[in-house]
């Protein structure tokens, strides 16, 4: 037993090294949609996989048929054409009805997920995101907290034309911002999206959701990050919005509910200089009081 325990560090180190060398090549493995960290993103991922496997199944059949014909009926192998084979009502009915069946089977779960996606009820925090050329503004509704979020300095320097900086040397190149949006885990967040100048789109792949931020309109989407999935999630603007469209990432930091309260309080304190002189624990208490809608975690 003790021997085994003593071995643990070296095993850990070894697997860490293996993992590191693997992740150095991990980009080749980026082949599929991420599963995500919300209920909806998982449902979307499973819809994606279901329709994908249907396509594979149909593909095996259709491509199999094609390849079979191309091999079996080669003129060079002396194949003689059967010129009487020009029509078959039975075949046509079969290859109309079966696809209809497959589509119905797909449409039902898709519709169910779509209905869940559109259900904005019961959200606990509302955040308004406004797209600007080329940054995001986040306003925490009812909290007096509002800030801009734009590409971090390091990426911004590296991304200049012929900057000479190797993007690989920059941490989270193009996917990092100065001020990320912060939300608590396990909480239904409603995003209100609009655009200031042109249309942008707010997208975090791990949340499964993307929606346009359009001037003159407010769009909604919601997400609820699973408990225990704290961390930083990254995405990008997904609607062409001009010259620097490629350089306005969306970064969301998911924290525990307690950390969120502390963070919110600090933001408020920073926003209004007067309470900043109050005792250190006062803002935190304020923050709790200011979150009447949030259920006690």
């Amino acid at each position: 037993m003790t021997k085994a325990i003593r071995r643990v560090p070296s095993v850990l180190a070894l697997s860490a090294a293996a993992f590191a060398s693997l992740s150095a090549h991990a980009e080749w493995g980026n082949l599929n949609m991420p599963v995500g960290v919300t209920e909806l993103s998982k449902e979307i991922h499973s819809l994606h996989m279901t329709i994908f496997w249907w396509c594979v199944a149909i593909g095996v059949f259709v491509f199999g048929w094609m390849i079979w014909s191309l091999v079996a009926f080669r003129k060079s192998q002396g194949a003689k054409p059967d010129t009487t084979m020009v029509h078959s009502t039975k075949a046509e009915i079969i290859w109309t009805v079966i696809p209809v069946g497959i589509l119905v089977i797909m449409a039902i779960p898709a519709a169910r997920t779509l209905i869940a996606i559109e259900d904005m009820r019961g959200s606990e925090i509302s955040i308004k995101a406004t797209g600007y050329q080329w940054k995001w503004q986040y306003e925490y509704i009812g909290e007096d907290v509002s800030f801009f979020s734009q590409l971090d300095r390091q990426s911004d320097e590296a991304r200049q034309l012929k900057s000479g900086v190797d993007p690989k040397s920059v941490q989270d190149y193009l996917l990092n911002v100065d001020n990320p949006m912060v939300v608590p885990e396990d909480t239904k967040i409603r995003m209100l999206l609009t655009g200031q100048d042109v249309i942008h789109a707010w997208w975090v792949p791990a949340f499964g959701m993307k929606k346009d931020a359009i001037p003159g309109t407010i769009n909604e989407l919601w997400f609820k990050v699973d408990a225990g999935k704290t961390g930083t999630y990254r995405g990008q603007c997904a609607e062409l919005c001009g010259r620097d469209h490629g350089f306005m990432p969306v970064v969301v930091k998911v924290v525990t509910k307690e950390e969120y309260k502390v963070w919110l309080a600090a933001q408020k304190a920073a926003a209004s200089p007067a309470p900043a002189e109050a005792p250190a624990d006062a803002p935190a208490a304020d923050a709790v009081a200011a979150l009447p809608a949030a259920p006690r975690g």
Binding site: V62, W65, S69, F73, R74, K75, A79, M85
Partner: peptide, 12 residues
């Protein structure tokens, strides 16, 4: 499907 059926039993 019709294109596939056209090739079926043809002389390609």
């Amino acid at each position: 499907f019709n294109w596939c059926a056209t090739m079926w039993k043809g002389s390609i």
